[in-house]
Simulated scan of single mutants.
Amino acid sequence: MTTVTLDTAPKPRTARPALRAVRARARTVGLYALSVVLGVAVWQVLAAHYGPSLVASPRETLSAARELAADGTLGNSIVASGRRILIGWGLGLLVGVPAGLLIGQIRIVRQLLEPYIEFFRFIPPIAFVTLAVVWLGIGESSKVVLIFYTSVFIVILNTSAGVMAVSESKLRAAASLGAGRRQVLTRVVLPSTVPHIVTGARLAMGNSFLTIVSAEIVAAQVGLGSLIWTSRNYGRIDWVFVGIITLGLLGFVFDRVLRIVASRVLRRYGVKL
């Protein structure tokens, strides 16, 4: 008598999730492309309605970008502005994160520093442009300090808010298990605060782009802000559009890189972007 054995074990379904992921990514790329096409179409309609003296068309802007790229103006401006933003923003993180951790954990530090933070964070960086130039000159230091000033308070506020939002039950549980202050900071407080730090870093990056334009208009020969201002003086609306669009693209790239680094390197802390 022959015995027939039926294999009823479920087969692995690895293809379907992979296929769904590919379709989801393709759908995202398609929606991005559709959004860009619609935006360019609206831009073209506005340019046709108002004329080149007010709104440069996409073709004119592309031609101007090629012109500025050919003589090196656009590339030098991108490098100069990007370097200033990254240095000032990076210094803001280096100072803001430790300061936020101290303010959030130690009450006396919070009481000592809070009046200054609440005072200076409401003064826009553009108000200090003249003083920065007088004190530090028209070199790189004045621009970097202004961007640092823009970034540091945002990072401090978000970091301290994250520290103070840590559940008291988690802190008591860690203390009851014998964790010291340093272990509580590294094992409980910091992992819970990382999402707030990343959010503060992204907001600070956006504000850095707001500051760089005003700083370079006043005290810079090279940079995207200087390019926009010089274009205005020469009546080149197409150059102005090139500078504005380049700022937006540069900010998009910086933010995207920051999100990728945060999601991969800080995934063990529970950051989901």
Rank of each mutant, 00 (worst) to 15 (best):
L146S: 08
L190H: 07
V194W: 00
L146W: 10
A99P: 11
D7R: 05
V29N: 12
S142T: 10
F119N: 13
K143M: 12
L258V: 08
G206M: 15
A33E: 14
A41R: 06
K170W: 03
Y116D: 15
P195L: 02
L93K: 04
L102I: 11
G206F: 15
L185G: 04
V218W: 01
T28M: 09
T3Y: 09
A204I: 13
L68A: 07
L249M: 04
G162S: 07
Q44A: 13
R268K: 06
S231Y: 09
P125K: 05
A175P: 00
M1W: 05
A173P: 00
G178H: 00
G39W: 06
A26V: 12
T211V: 12
S192Q: 12
A165L: 10
S214E: 08
Q44G: 13
R202N: 10
V4C: 02
W239Y: 14
V189R: 05
G39H: 09
A70V: 14
S151P: 01
L112E: 00
P124A: 10
L31Y: 14
A21E: 12
L62D: 02
R107Y: 01
L54I: 15
V163A: 03
S176I: 00
K11V: 04
F148N: 03
D71Y: 15
N158C: 06
L112C: 01
I217N: 12
V133D: 07
P58I: 04
Y269W: 04
V163K: 04
E118N: 15
K11N: 03
M1K: 07
V97H: 04
P17D: 09
S169F: 00
R83S: 11
F241A: 03
T159R: 01
V240W: 07
L86M: 13
G206D: 11
I108N: 02
I147D: 04
G82I: 04
T159H: 02
P124M: 08
T150P: 00
I123V: 12
L247D: 02
F241P: 01
A132M: 07
L247V: 10
L131Y: 08
L273P: 01
V166L: 03
T186S: 14
N233S: 11
G72T: 09
L93E: 04
L131P: 00
L38Y: 08
S57E: 09
V40H: 06
T246N: 01
V129E: 01
N233K: 10
N207G: 15
E140K: 11
L74A: 05
T211N: 14
G235Q: 11
P10F: 04
G225C: 13
T159S: 03
F122W: 12
V22E: 13
T193M: 05
H49L: 09
L250T: 11
V240F: 10
S160V: 05
A165I: 14
S176N: 00
Y32G: 14
R268Q: 11
V40R: 12
